[in-house]
Nucleic acid binder design. Structure first.
Lengths: 246, 246
DNA sequence: TGAGAATGTTTGAAAATCGTAAAAAGATTG
DNA sequence: CAATCTTTTTACGATTTTCAAACATTCTCA
């Protein structure tokens, strides 16, 4: 998609940094006290959490919950962290933060051999762990954007620059408007239901009503009129972008 | 594709990016274990690989194989990475990613002195290396990000000297300010999310909050005003550098 | 044609984001 | 190790955007 820093709609968030709506974090750790502590801190930051208390259980949980990040203790019953990490790495790219004891060979963990993304030495400061979680999650986001301007009749949409031109003239759009238009322009003629648009533009966890889409469509229509392209209502279904035929 | 939130969750089935048929990558590294590992990962991504186990051998291999990118260890027998890099740079533009030890002077490596395109600190995560390879290759086409002074209206940014001039007048910038401006100037008009800027300027493992970016942007704005170029806020997304239009 | 449902449009309060100053924390230097 | 400089955090007001609600309009189908 195209929005580098989606705003997080409809959610009670204070000073929190924004992460993809409901980022799921799985904690694999046998000591309940630690699980509880970490859970508490992550909750407070708006993350969704799950826990597994052993290696095997952990592997199952990963499959089931599809977390966005795993916090993995090195010392575990059944299957130790090394093995769990290795198996996870074999068929996923889910970021992993290891909990290690002081003195563990950190280089091996984060480096080649295991391929974890980061580690925190026990005993650790929960706040630091949270910071690391955020940092690791952020890493994926820095990739260059697919450049290239989409053109359709008198309409140009530049995703990388977030600029829209109507017959060559720059038209300032707001975040939602831009994202909405961009989705439509990417597949001209394709009908999008309001729900599809909500998922695409507002995020899958958006809690508002579907009429919101209508409002934004109306505003978009205002701003991009007379460019040889228009947003058509598909009655009872949704909207699509069409090239004027005359 | 760079949307952190929504389109990202499918981590499992990662689609291979398309690079020119059979992009060749040469690894110059004396430790066979590392060569093997890296080779495996690059293979998996569809790259063609070759290896050289020493500095001299590496130079020869470059001549012979004409790779599209070189991964170069800093510590090598015969001829060390510094020297190899220097010689490569003397008569080619082949992108180079350096493998360094933690603590090596990264500024010198990627800066003008050596002119490598990127670096990865050992011990490294192979997946990250692959990501960097892709990033560098992608960057390669398009823009001569090479040395020299970047000029944009009344603004000059000299990466080598780390100097900035506003309408010819030198303006002293602090480290962060300079790096920030530099990344923005390299791709004027391109929108950078705060996360992207944090990754680029502060590093992949920066642990602070995103508002830090705002503060530095504010300070930059102070220092580079009235030079025909300004930093624009892209509401809900991030910042971009724009040439004044009036 | 008219009732009911879906959509269009306008609006202002509420929410989100941003700018900035100033305090706090961290680095660097002499 | 104190002084100084840089960076980061924090706090709060200012600004911008969003969205639900209300009402108007259009559409469908009996």
């Amino acid at each position: 998609m195209f929005n580098p820093a989606k705003s997080e709609p409809k959610r009670r968030v204070e000073q929190h940094e924004k992460f993809p709506a409901m980022t799921k974090i799985l904690i694999i750790e046998d000591e309940p006290a630690i699980v509880e502590l970490v859970t508490m801190y992550l909750d407070k930051e708006g993350f969704e959490t799950a826990a597994a208390y052993g290696g095997l259980e952990g592997l199952v949980a990963v499959k089931r919950d599809q977390p966005d990040l795993v916090i993995l203790d090195l010392m575990l019953p059944e299957l130790d962290g090394w093995e769990v990490c290795r198996r996870l790495r074999k068929d996923t790219d889910i970021p992993i933060i290891m909990l290690t004891a002081r003195g563990d060979d950190v280089d091996k963990i984060v480096g080649l051999e295991l391929g974890a993304d980061d580690y925190v030495a026990k005993p650790f400061n929960p706040r630091e762990l949270v910071a690391r979680v955020k940092a690791v999650l952020r890493r994926g986001k820095g990739r260059p954007q697919a450049s290239g301007t989409l053109r359709l009749a008198g309409l140009e949409v530049d995703a990388a620059r977030r600029e829209v031109r109507v017959r060559g003239e720059r038209v300032p759009l707001r975040t939602r408007e831009f994202d909405l238009l961009h989705t439509l322009v990417m597949q001209p003629g394709m009908v999008f239901s309001r729900d599809q648009l909500l998922n695409q533009v507002w995020g899958y966890d958006y809690l508002g009503g579907t009429r919101t889409v209508d409002v934004h469509v109306a505003q978009l229509r205002q701003k991009i009129k007379d460019c040889g392209v228009h947003i058509e209502t598909v009655w009872g279904v949704g909207y699509k972008l069409c090239v004027d035929d005359d």
